[in-house]
Structure formats: C-alpha cells, structure tokens
Design a binder for these strands. Sequence first.
DNA 1: CCAATGCAAGAGCACTGCTCTCGTTTTTGT
DNA 2: ACAAAAACGAGAGCAGTGCTCTTGCATTGG
Lengths: 229, 229
Amino acid sequence: MSTAQGARARARIEVTAAIKDEARRQLAAEGAAKLSLRSVARELGMVSSALYRYFPSRDELLTALIIDAYDSLGEAAEAAHATAADADHVRRWTAVCERVRAWALAHPHEYALIYGSPVPGYAAPETTVPAASRVGLLLIGIVRDAHRRPGLADLPLPGELRPEAERMAADLAPDLPPQAAVALVAAWAELFGLVGFELFGQFHRVVEDRETFFRHAAARLAHGVGLRP
Amino acid sequence: MSTAQGARARARIEVTAAIKDEARRQLAAEGAAKLSLRSVARELGMVSSALYRYFPSRDELLTALIIDAYDSLGEAAEAAHATAADADHVRRWTAVCERVRAWALAHPHEYALIYGSPVPGYAAPETTVPAASRVGLLLIGIVRDAHRRPGLADLPLPGELRPEAERMAADLAPDLPPQAAVALVAAWAELFGLVGFELFGQFHRVVEDRETFFRHAAARLAHGVGLRP
DNA sequence: CCAATGCAAGAGCACTGCTCTCGTTTTTGT
DNA sequence: ACAAAAACGAGAGCAGTGCTCTTGCATTGG
C-alpha cells in the first residue's frame, strides 16, 4: 500500500519544480533563446545529463513553461474578471483586456513564448490547448452573460459567412447567435494584435500614451462584439 | 574618378547578395532558429570566418533579412492596392489586408521574423523603420483618399483620448481627423493580430473556413475606421 | 535479502557564434 | 610605377550548446 509516496517520488517532484523554477527565471531574465539546459543544471548544482531524467528535451521543458505561462495569464485574467463582477459588461470586458495587457508587459518573454512565433521546431503540442483557452473562455462568458440579461446588440451576418459562423457557434457557444461567435473570435485575435504590437515595439514613435490608447481600443472591441454599457 | 567600381567592389556586392539569398533560403525552409552562419558559408563553399567580412554577426544578417521581408511584404501589399485602384475604399482596404494575409501564409518564417517575437537579444534596429512602415502608410493612404472624396464616416472621440489622438494625427496624417488616426492604428495592429493568430495556430479547431472569416474580419476593420462602400 | 529500477556523474559527439592569425590579392596614394 | 594600406579567404581555436552512452551508487519492490 504505502500511503506517503517514497522519498524518491517526493524528491522527483521537488527537483522537477526546481528545474522549472530556474528555467522560468532564466526565461524571464533573458528570453527563450538564451535559456539553456546546461545553465539551468549548472545553477542547480547538477550536471546537464542528469536533467534529462526529468525532461526528455529542451523543447519539452519549454512546453512545460508554455503551459505555466498560459495558466498564469488565464489566472490573472480570471482574477480581474472576478473583481469586476458587479460592473456592466463593457467594463468587465475591458477589465479582462487591460489585465491581459498588464500581464504581457510584466512578463514579456513569457508572452512572446506563447503568442509570439512558436520557438521550437514549431507546432505547439495538443497538451497546451486547455491552458491556452482560458482567456478565450472568459471572453465568451462575458458575451454570454450579456446575451442572457439581455443586452447583446444584434450584428449583421453576411450570407457568405453563415455556414462558418454556425459551425463556430456550435463548437464555441451553442447558446450564442452565430454572428456573435465570429465577432468574438475576431475580437479575441485583435486583442492580442494590440498587445503584441505594443510589446514588440511596433508602436515605437507611433503611440505615446499607450495605456489610454489601449483602454479605448479595448472598449471599441467590446462594442464590436455587441456589448453595450 | 574611376566610373566602373573595381572588380573587388562588384564581387563584394555579389557575395553579399549570395549570402543573403542562401540565408533567406534557409530561413524559409527551416526558420530563423535553425539558420546558422556556418551552414550558409558551407553551402556557399566558403569557410565560416570569411562570412564575417560581410556581416559582422548573425544578428546583423538577420536584420538584413528582416528589412528584406518588410520590403517584400510592403511591395506585395502595394501591388494589391494598385490592382484594386479603381474599386471603392472598402474593397481597396480588404484587398490590401487579404494580400498581407496571403503573403504571411506564403512566407510563414519571414512573417514570424518580423511580426513574431523579436528573435535576437531583441529591439529591432532603427534601420528597419522605413521598410516596416510601408503597409501602414498604404492603409493611411486609403483612409486619406476616403476623407478627401469625401466618404469617411465620423467617429466619436472621447475627451480622455483627444490629446493622444491629436498627437498621433499630427505625426501620422495631419490632414485626417484625430479620431481617424487612432482608429487606423488600432485597426493596423488588429489586422496583424488576425493574421498572426491564424499563422501561429491559435485558430486550430476554432476557425475552419479561414479565408471567408478573414475577409469579413477585414471588412469589419474597414468599417471600424470609417470606410463605407 | 536480492534483483530491478531510478538516478547522478562524466566523457564524448556534433554542432554553434565568434576571434585571431597568416599569407595573398587588390586598391590606393604618391 | 611602386610601395604602403586595406580587403580578403583560409585555418585553427575558444567557449558554449543539445543530446547520448556508459559507469557506479542509492532506493525501491518482491
């Protein structure tokens, strides 16, 4: 039987956590490109080959960090949503958007890891999907609330788009009108376009008061999906 | 005086071009991470150290490729704009957007290089700015045309945003109303959010008919900046 | 108690960016 | 036209990387 897992098993999860912590430290400090297995091992006082008992490759380590980053961002966004629970739909939407931006500015390298170019060979493994969906699900929830109250403006749905819109709505939010689903996905992508452009320097000498600019852009996105104050 | 530059100077620009060509080949085939100076040199039949006579570092080579990529994208977008010169403003806008998307899908690694996470240490050098602005200038031109005809819808300008809006308009397009400038910059960033999400796999199992989805998202962006058919 | 497994260490391979030196060739100033 | 200066290609070498394989020790489980 043995209730308490042996000392070995406990040591394993501790070492695994220590590796991830040190790797995350190096990622935050220098970026994914400069993160090296050898230097993580060195910092932890072990030899590089020992590290392969815990992660089969550098890419696997990075994947673990990717999932953690998605979770950290999702948690932050959910917390922002919770503290704005009493506000109207537009304010809840912008609260989530602003928190996403704040998280990105605070964790630029983690953000680049998950929303920048895929760093490894490429193709994010399927295991990252649940963690990656958290912000999206949050935004869907806000629009769903607005639709139930009711308070979701009706959007036009061009005929050409109807089949895809219905498919998307069926997968994402069967209770929402199809045009809301497409508007939502578009706004979701556009939100990260705004954040990414600011973070990666495209707004250099273009936007100065980025906080104000972003707040209004986020409000315009909310308006675009049909939310009204 | 000496009109025809010496054979040495001519050889230099030829070798420089050959290096860039081979580097671009490897970039397109394997991505920026796998592009190595040594393998470029190997493929060109020279030794790696000789390559440093032409590019002082790997990052400088990458910077040259970045500028070329911006120019290639800008050229494609301008060509699309030219062939749609007779159409209405919305169609010209969407033509440019769709060409940007098509270029990104055709050159994923180049796109990742310029709009993904900055690959080197980071911070794109100032020399990339002119090439990077071409698509933005194109979009500004379309809105300016619409404003002159006239046919640019009036957008609201919240008081809080007015100072930044006026600053942006002064820098970007003094002849446009301030609110058009902010809407333009936001739409510009959002456009690349849409493209990036599709390219980097965020639409996996979310959007199926991506062409149709994108066309309508681009049209919605046009509407958002005040363009009307 | 003993065999099977988990683990850390070390050596080693193939690769990278980059530097320095050493002849050779081309350009330039007088 | 000739010598000094600059540009160039080749090679060796340094420090670093991801990853594999073998060896010996510690911890498990039957």
